[in-house]
Design a protein around this nucleic acid. Structure first.
Length: 560
RNA sequence: UGGGGCGUAGCCAAGUGGCGAAGGCACCGGGUUUUGAUCCCGGCAUUCGUAGGUUCGAGUCCUACCGCCCCAGCCA
């Protein structure tokens, strides 16, 4: 890796990886992304995926995808598939390095036998409650289990019987024999195997004892010859145990665990448990609800893999618990789509305009650029006729001076079209809503420029009424209305759900060129924002768009 | 004195004792513009949780204090 001063500085993990590569300790680093298949991946996982797979790529190493599937009571194949799909979609490739901790069950069992033989593990008959009592508290040491001094032979026999299904769930466990007085609670003879007569999604019913995380993870890393085992801060206290297992077993290699801070985003919740709750209780339509910050939700909303990768790149890796502003995520998709998305005309809340002096049956074709800054993206034709739709918000009966759009007597440019002037308007007598604008156009201004060089301040978007396609547009807002929905443990985070996080406009009018747009395609509705054709609910003749994010709007700010 | 971490701008985040405390987001000005978008230019920490100390020199080293986070699952 080269790193000139102008480049982004390396985060502390990459500094370590760089040193290890340069010193020859680990010429080709191997990392791993180790999800438990008990839920969908979210933006927080993306941070870890980008870190682990990113290092694999940058250092010509590899990154494994390993499912940490040691708790069959919570895990399902469906999750395995969705996780694989999400990692791929994000743009990463584990090649042939797809692993499951459950593939190591046999070896893990042998290692446990080895531990027993070395006098470093024992079968404990204490109940769960007793184990907790004996563990002591944060400030007081624990007490030794009465079963701690069982003989190797007895332990071997008992553990074998555990494996063979001789005992009931919860009746016995295998514990590492470390130190019940350790100030680190993880070292107070942690349970490493428990009896769980549960069907496993991969191993079926061949096992009724399952290894615990702390015991499994380090050994899995070791078996795969992982060089740098990256995890989040809450595992910092577990590192002594990680190291103890490998040291005690005198394994041929010993990966280095390094901890970094997990991602926190404001106005949302990140824990799988809470996301699951939102899904199960119907607060959202599913894991892929476009408001969810799951990978599948973001994908459906219209976020691109590149935008998520750039986001993860921007926020950095460190050990401080930090809260990233939602605006940073939004900015990442604006940035990406500004480059890639074609510009089109879409009217969200239509207001009919009649061009009084335009020939009744004339239809002109007007050429429009697909991207003003990228001529290589080509042009398209827009039909123009006597009756148009413009945005309701682009007309004010009594506009302030700084309002550059339509008002009685005001002239405005229709993007790529003509200058029009508002002559009169009609309102609904009951609601007072403006229902129709009568305008005249200047035939000399076709394309949007006037021969006399006169300036118009505003340019607005429009569609031809009889050519426009109808569609539905779904508008989304942040799911919660406070920055830290789960900060106060005494309040249910769901009390902070934003009741207006989702809305729908069903009478939108879009230009006819969108007729054959395919699902998942994103476009910019000029002056509005970026929109993605919904991959689930959209049908060829009932188009449904998701608003990904609005454009920046300095006028909206000015209004305040 | 249970243990383990972390404190640099509104939000992230570089900085690894030597002359100006990167960069991004946000924000505020100005310019270009047929999207009030994009783009461009400029502004934005006499100070690094606080107080002492070491040093010719400290955000970087030492000491004390303050604040925040994590740990008592047969979850990961």
């Amino acid at each position: 890796m080269t790193n000139t001063p102008s480049e982004k500085p390396l985060d502390f993990i990459r500094q370590i990886v760089t040193e290890d590569q340069e010193s020859g300790k680990h010429p080709t680093p191997i990392t791993r992304f180790p999800p438990e298949p008990n839920g969908f991946l979210h933006i927080g996982h993306a941070k870890s995926i980008c870190l682990n797979f990113g290092i694999g790529q940058e250092y010509q190493g590899t990154c494994h995808l390993r499912f940490d599937d040691t708790n069959p009571s919570k895990e399902e194949v469906e999750y395995v598939e969705s996780i694989k799909a999400d990692v791929k979609w994000l743009g990463f490739d584990w090649q042939d390095h797809l692993y499951f901790a459950s593939d190591y069950f046999e070896q893990l069992y042998e290692f446990a036998v080895e531990l027993i033989k070395r006098g470093k593990a024992y079968v404990c008959d204490l109940t769960g409650d007793q184990i907790r009592e004996f563990r002591g508290t944060l400030k007081e040491p624990g007490k030794n289990s009465p079963f701690r001094e069982r003989s190797v032979e007895e332990n071997l026999s008992l553990f074998g019987q555990m494996k063979d299904g001789a005992f009931e769930d919860g009746s016995r466990v295998l514990r590492a024999k470390i130190d019940m007085a350790s100030p680190n609670i993880n070292m107070r003879d942690p349970v490493i195997y428990r009896i769980l007569k549960t069907h496993h999604h991969r191993t079926g019913d061949s096992w009724c004892i399952y290894p615990m995380y702390d015991y499994t993870h380090c050994l899995s890393d070791m078996l795969e010859e992982i060089t740098h085992s990256l995890c989040t801060l809450e595992f910092e206290d577990h590192r002594p145990l990680y190291d103890w297992v490998l040291d005690t077993l005198q394994t041929p290699c010993h990966p280095r665990q390094i901890e970094f801070a997990r991602l926190n985003l404001n106005y949302t919740v990140m824990s799988k448990r809470k996301l699951l709750q939102l899904v199960e209780e119907g607060h959202v339509s599913g894991w892929d609800d476009p408001r969810m910050l799951t990978i599948s939700g973001l994908r459906r909303r219209g976020y691109t893999p590149a935008s998520i990768r750039n986001f993860c790149d921007q926020i950095g890796i460190g050990k401080r618990e930090s809260w990233i502003d939602m605006g940073v995520l939004e900015n990442s998709i604006r940035e990406d789509l500004n480059e890639k998305a074609a510009r089109v005309m879409g009217v969200l809340e239509p207001l009919k305009v009649i061009i009084e002096n335009y020939p009744d049956d004339l239809v002109e074709e007007i050429e429009a650029q697909n991207h003003p800054q990228k001529p290589e993206m080509g042009t398209r034709k827009l039909p123009f006729s006597k009756e148009l739709y413009i945005e309701k918000s682009d007309f004010l009966e009594d506009p302030p001076k700084k309002f550059f759009r339509l008002g009685p007597g005001r002239e405005v440019r229709l993007r790529y079209g003509y200058y029009i002037t508002c002559n009169s308007y009609e309102t609904d007598p009951e609601t007072g809503q403006v229902t129709l604008l009568r305008c005249s156009y200047d035939p000399e201004t076709k394309g949007g420029t006037s021969p006399d060089g006169r300036k118009v301040k505003g340019t607005i978007h429009w569609v031809s009424a009889k050519h426009a396609l109808g569609c539905e547009v779904r508008l989304y807002d942040r799911l919660f209305n406070v920055p830290h929905p789960d900060a106060d443990k005494s309040v249910d985070f769901k009390d902070h759900l934003n009741p207006d996080s989702s809305g729908s406009l069903t009478d939108c009018k879009i230009e006819p060129s969108l007729k054959n747009i395919t699902k998942g395609t994103s476009v910019q509705f000029e002056r509005q924002g970026y929109f993605c054709l919904d991959s689930v609910d959209s049908k060829p003749d009932e188009l449904v768009f998701n608003r990904i994010v609005t454009l920046r709007d300095s006028w909206a700010k000015l209004k305040k």
